[in-house]
Design a protein around this nucleic acid. Structure first.
Lengths: 335, 335
DNA sequence: GTGAAAGCGCTAACAG
DNA sequence: CTGTTAGCGCTTTCAC
């Protein structure tokens, strides 16, 4: 096996505490002895065993991150933020994917705790009381990130969905649109959609000639967006919809795909706006007008919050709201 | 702090060895005692400390994964494969992102070793001797995954690039194309492009009227694909190119974006084929015809290889080749 | 079957 | 400044 601190001590002819002192710079050591130790370290290629160190210091420099699926670009982006900021503070990321399974989420949280992670970031897409309880029960700093649902007074990082939705709807209205459909998902007491719909509604109500048109997609995926295409088109023809604001970029992309496949031109025949600014939104043609959720920053702020809490137990802020942006691109046009 | 094995032992009125035995099922324990222990475990909510366990057993159940950027969909996909298979064997993933920086790669490998990971999967996009040496020096099982470069006799999992490139070119030829451009990247002794170009060349040479047209992009990104659009279009007009086979989906997407922005229709005006089958390839319109690299499987097989090696030191296979697929979609058409 | 004791590799008092 | 010693929480002989 690799060399241990003992080997170094023996080779350098000093005690292990002295070795510990020089590699940690924790206490003054005479230059002469220090040199001997360093030489021995080099000669043996000694690398401290972090596991042993963790056992005594109680500091693992590990943050557990459980995500639903790293394959989602918005999640990957958040993980990037988490990891990059974590690294600045010497933290490493222990990654677990739940694929949306409740049991898996629960299991991983347990597992992470056993592995002595110092904090947990849960990137969930479901809402469940057991998970909440477990998170509290673990007694380690955590942040709960959820794009679809909210839990009151629970540590999280987000944007002002009400305001974002309001502003985007306004943008569409200013473009001249009046028949603006809003594509939402399921109704749920804890769904963030409630805020977004409220924002949309407010904008609609403020302007004469505008009419609220709500449409529900089945799920959150691109496919769900595609599949609603047929029925949505009927609705459009019936009501004269000229713009559609989707609560998720995925719907917008799916819908645009359906439009492409059926020779409906965007934005000439209909304007499409999304929400999220996932990676593909700026790659797809036409590029998608959307609400930019700062995924990277959300991750970055989330871990920063944990690290701060690790330093100073009492942090007041539980919910952090980050700024968003209305990103204007070619999928929406003046009418 | 959380309860330790000592607390359990005390509460159950047995020795800590007995507790260890029942929670690990490592030695027979009388049912009566077992029950007492289990009760105590429940009452205290005891969860073994994996760090302490690792220190004595020398098994961390951790695999280190260093990637360039989890934001790349092909990388995310590989990590999914790694993680999912890892979990089947109770392994967790320690994730590090190098963002292509050599020093970072080196540093993380070191770090992972200190954290006692049992194996390392390096997902690199550069080639460097130092890295190779370091990997060997670490003396733990590893797999080296690199989409752009190869290292002879180095543990990796890949596809037969020569054959894939050959088959795709053939497909284009069978569609009636004769002036087929191949978009490559930089020339480098260790570039996988050498194999791909050879495959392309072979197909071209086999058919009368075909002519080799090589074009080099600046880098590997979508932007690089976009930026070559202008010059490429000139070349197309000059040579009468009817199809372009890009060595990377990113180029193909970037190119198609340039075409879209300049009113060149795909596939009517030019057929476009890619390589990789990254996520966006099947979402973009028109959907991209491409060589499907099984990213998920590559990750899955990579970690499986490591786990196998952990079980049985001597594994013969160093390079594993996985099957690929020619995925025919709408971006290529008969001429 | 069960307990006592040693030890994994390291840090951190405590003496000197 | 430096060495000795006592653990961190757990597994694993080795006796009984």
């Amino acid at each position: 096996m690799s060399a241990t601190i003992k080997d170094v001590a023996k080779l350098a002819g000093v005690s292990i505490s002295t070795v510990s002192r020089v590699i940690n710079n924790s206490k003054p050591v005479s230059n002469e002895v220090k040199k001997k130790v360093l030489d021995a370290v080099n000669e043996l290629g000694y690398k401290p065993n972090e596991v042993a160190r963790t056992l005594v210091t109680k500091r693992s420099y590990l943050i557990g991150v459980v995500v639903t699926d790293i394959g989602n670009s918005y999640i990957a982006e958040m993980v990037r933020g988490i990891e990059e900021v974590g690294k600045m503070y010497n933290y490493d990321i222990l990654l677990c994917s739940s694929y949306g399974d409740l049991e898996a989420e629960l299991k991983f949280m347990q597992l992470l705790k056993r592995k002595q992670v110092e904090g947990i970031i849960l990137l969930s897409e479901i809402v469940n009381e057991e998970v909440i309880d477990k998170l509290d029960e673990l007694k380690i700093p955590f942040v709960y990130l959820n794009r679809y649902f909210y839990i009151e007074d629970f540590p999280t990082v987000t944007i002002d969905d009400y305001q974002a939705s309001y502003e985007m709807t306004n943008y569409l209205i200013n473009l001249g649109h009046r028949k603006i459909a809003y594509v939402t998902v399921n109704e749920d007491e804890y769904s963030l959609e409630n805020f977004k719909i409220a924002g949309y509604r407010k904008a609609i109500e403020e302007v004469d000639g505008c009419e609220e048109i709500l449409y529900s997609a089945k799920g959150y995926s691109i496919d769900d967006g595609y599949e609603m295409g047929r029925d949505f088109l009927k609705l459009r023809d019936k009501l004269g919809i000229t713009a559609v604001f989707c609560s998720h970029d995925e719907h917008a992309i799916g819908l645009m795909n359906y439009f492409y496949d059926n020779n409906i031109r965007v934005p000439e025949d209909i304007s499409v706006a999304g929400y999220g600014d996932i990676k593909i939104a700026s790659i797809y043609r036409p590029r998608l007008t959307t609400v930019k959720e700062p995924h990277y920053d959300i991750g970055a702020v989330a871990i920063r919050k944990i690290i701060k809490e690790l330093k100073d137990k009492d942090q007041k802020e539980t919910i952090i709201k980050l700024p968003f942006q209305i990103v204007k691109r070619e999928s929406c046009e003046k009418i």
